[in-house]
Design a protein around this nucleic acid. Structure first.
Lengths: 254, 254
DNA sequence: CCCGATTCTGTGAATCGTCTGAGAAAGCGC
DNA sequence: GCGCTTTCTCAGACGATTCACAGAATCGGG
């Protein structure tokens, strides 16, 4: 279906190509979802990471695609028109035993039986998700699968600010800082794009779920929260670019 | 609702490659089960441990596979379409005399027969099992068989908390702590992934049986039990990451 | 230096996630 | 078979989190 070659970079966040295959070629991701708009949204976000994305809309095509293109990771909607997630997974495993899978599932489906889905090294996110979350999870899977090179410890560092994606811990200058889930995702997004202005719209699109319908100034609000927690009484790292957005960079030691 | 394993978060167990063959090559496991979904589930979990897995669906193929690939351990369903467990075992022993075997058996299977099967140092688990349990038993077999090099003495340690996988003993700061079976498995899973956030869904998938159909808040409940036993009146080691999951790490000495 | 536009932040309310007690049911040892 | 243990459901309580709203503060262009 929507096959595409690499198409890294656009304007927003610059995807550090910190994950690549051992031979240096781009990571290949297969997205399987029958909701076209969603699949497009996803593939755009993943391409932006510098990954090569291919999307399919049903289980049968997905399996064919997996056989052909040998992806490094698969993003799989558990609700497909032709077969259910478990079946696709089982068959996928027969094709490509070690490929890590990120499942997309409705929030209330979780109860019934994601069982076994995450048994291996896999993971899942519930709809509606934020792109940040999907990308983060996918990076986690890729990192751990070893399909992709690089073992960066999942630590994000900007100046003396450190964010650990595994333990969800954040510290500045050694001092631990407690963040709520939303604050954490916002900071992670900023830190993945240091010294780069991110508009409120971009932030909203990335950090909040794709179906968020609220006021745009939640972003301002959360920036405010973050500043209180990480910039209080020190050289500030979060900066406002009036009319443009926000950016994070190491605080100049006054 | 109180049950949502929301924000699945982080990653599954870290596959410590702490078991390897003397030459450093990966451990090879043969899984023999005719229920394909179950075999897939198992192989996924075992691969995630860093082991090399091959699956077969009947006794004849299993024997052929054993002859060819000389596995370091075998996971064997005692109910196979073509021959029964005893027969497969006997013939297996003729091929590869020393390979340890982990039997999978229905709960109500006749006790004494199993007893006969496991006479030689083998082990078994009853269906439905939890992945943690299978992995743990298999590790035990591998360690004892000496096929794989031993590293860690089967002691898990996080701070002053020590868990002995062989004796099932747990102590904190030297004081012994009694845990029930479920509490033990949960703690073991946490301790095998220190400083890493594990979502309720992941925990459910790993620690509870694959056919568990209950409420996701059993996880909360058992976390609560564990805390009473290991975190009472000391720097807590089990931490909640709201909206993400739980993690264990050494308690800061206040 | 003034003014409108933009950003910041306090308040408060609704919602969400987690913890825990009580007790039913199932399991186990003797 | 009987009592004790363990597992698990249910539901209430509580605290944390998210977010809207609105007024205050700040900025930058003229």
């Amino acid at each position: 279906m929507t096959t595409t070659p690499t198409a890294p970079a656009a304007h927003p966040a610059a995807p550090a190509a910190d994950l690549a295959r051992p031979d240096g070629s781009p990571v290949r991701v297969l997205v399987v979802d029958d909701e076209t708009p969603l699949a497009d949204l996803l593939s755009m976000a993943l391409r932006y990471e510098g990954w090569q994305v291919r999307t399919e809309g049903d289980g049968a095509s997905a399996l064919r695609a997996a056989r052909e293109s040998r992806p490094d990771a698969v993003v799989l909607d558990v609700m497909l028109p032709d077969m259910d997630g478990l079946e696709v997974l089982a068959r996928l495993r027969r094709e490509t035993p070690d490929v890590p899978v990120l499942f997309l599932t409705a929030k209330d489906a979780v109860e019934d039986r994601i069982a076994g889905l995450t048994a291996g090294g896999d993971d899942y996110v519930t709809k509606p998700f934020s792109l940040e979350e999907v990308v983060a999870r996918l990076r986690g899977l890729l990192r751990r699968s070893g399909a992709a090179a690089v073992r960066n410890e999942s630590l994000l560092t900007v100046g003396d600010l450190v964010l650990n994606e595994d333990s969800h811990e954040v510290s500045r200058g050694g001092a631990n800082i407690h963040l709520t889930a939303t604050e954490f995702e916002l900071l992670r997004y900023l830190m993945r794009n240091p010294r780069r202005v991110l508009s409120k719209a971009q932030i909203l699109d990335r950090v909040w779920s794709y179906d968020f319908g609220g006021q745009a100034n939640v972003v301002e609000l959360y920036i405010s929260y973050l500043r209180r927690k990480i910039d209080v009484g020190r050289p500030p790292m979060i900066h406002t670019r009036r009319g443009a957005g926000y950016l994070i960079k190491p605080g100049e030691p006054a």
